[in-house]
């Protein structure tokens, strides 16, 4: 199929972009890396009136650390995350996740902002952001606001970004010296969306793990924070956490796989990731 006719604008500044969104309302669609949007245009699953290309906005780029926070510009490409020494050193969870995102050609164009703004429930970076207690910097015509990760992912392809707003950056508190993270996913082929994935962030607490955030992806309509499982780790260890996970996730049957299979795979993955984080495996 061929994309329907669509108007295109490439603003030079964030204010110009916001003005275009305001002017065109629901017909306007911001374009980041285009790795999902262009596909849906080509399959005629989306038909915006105007694409507002964010690729020329200097305000949306760069990775920097200041005041105990890493700020990642929304237009930072996956490959730039992979190449960043800062990410490698300070955010090993993201560094571990990025190689699992699709294929090199997609990582060359796809952006962290596009990924979290799309909020595909099977994507890696939304789960990492939730595990890392990221804060999402969102700009509108009237000003800037920050939304905590726990309040950002609202449902299937739904986020706290409002009409006329643009996600500018993701701010992630730098994990402490005792931080420990774990990441893994089960995908049929390298680069596929995972059947189940897990992004975990916590800190060493004696022989155990404290402040543990276990975020599963591919098991619900958004990244799922598995609170029961995390609590059970502290109380009873890995086996208890695996049992408690049943109360955290309830994946549905779909084309690819039964919900029961995802549930089982999530349980296995939890055991493996926790095992690695606690040095058992």
């Amino acid at each position: 199929m061929k994309a329907p006719d669509v108007a295109y604008a490439r603003p030079r500044t964030l204010d110009e972009a916001l003005a275009l969104l305001a002017e065109h309302g629901e017909a306007a669609q911001p374009l980041a890396g285009g790795q999902s949007l262009v596909t849906s245009l080509n399959m005629r699953l989306a038909a915006p009136g105007l694409l507002v290309d964010l690729n020329g906005l200097p305000e949306l780029t760069g990775i920097a650390e200041a005041g105990g926070v890493i700020r990642i510009g929304a237009m930072t490409r996956h490959r730039d995350l992979a190449a960043s020494p800062l990410v490698a050193e300070r955010l090993p969870l993201i560094a571990a996740a990025v190689p699992h995102i699709a294929h090199p050609a997609i990582r060359n164009r796809g952006t962290i902002g596009g990924s979290v703004a799309l909020a595909d429930p099977a994507a890696e970076l939304p789960a990492c952001c939730l595990a890392l207690r990221a804060s999402f910097v969102i700009r509108g015509l009237t000003g800037e606001r920050r939304v905590a990760a726990d309040d950002f992912f609202l449902g299937l392809f739904e986020t706290a970004i409002g009409p006329g707003e643009i996600l500018v950056a993701i701010e992630i508190p730098v994990p402490g010296a005792d931080a420990v993270s774990g990441f893994d996913e089960l995908a049929r082929r390298h680069g596929d969306y995972a059947l189940v994935g897990l992004a975990a962030q916590g800190r060493r607490d004696g022989v155990g793990l404290g402040d543990l955030r276990l975020v599963f992806f591919g098991v619900g309509d958004r990244p799922v924070l598995a609170g029961n499982a995390a609590a059970a780790v502290a109380a009873g260890g890995v086996k208890a956490a695996q049992d408690a996970l049943a109360a955290d996730i309830d994946p549905a049957d779909d084309v690819a796989v039964r919900g029961a299979t995802r549930r089982h795979l999530a349980r296995v993955l939890l055991g493996r990731v926790l095992g690695r984080m606690t040095g058992e495996a």
Binding site: M43, R188, R189, H190, G191, D192, Y193, V255, A256
Partner: peptide, 16 residues
């Protein structure tokens, strides 16, 4: 047909 795309119909790829 439920999986008429290259994302959902899994062709064998080099990695596997």
């Amino acid at each position: 047909l439920l999986n008429g795309s290259m994302a959902d119909y899994l062709v064998p790829m080099a990695g596997e």
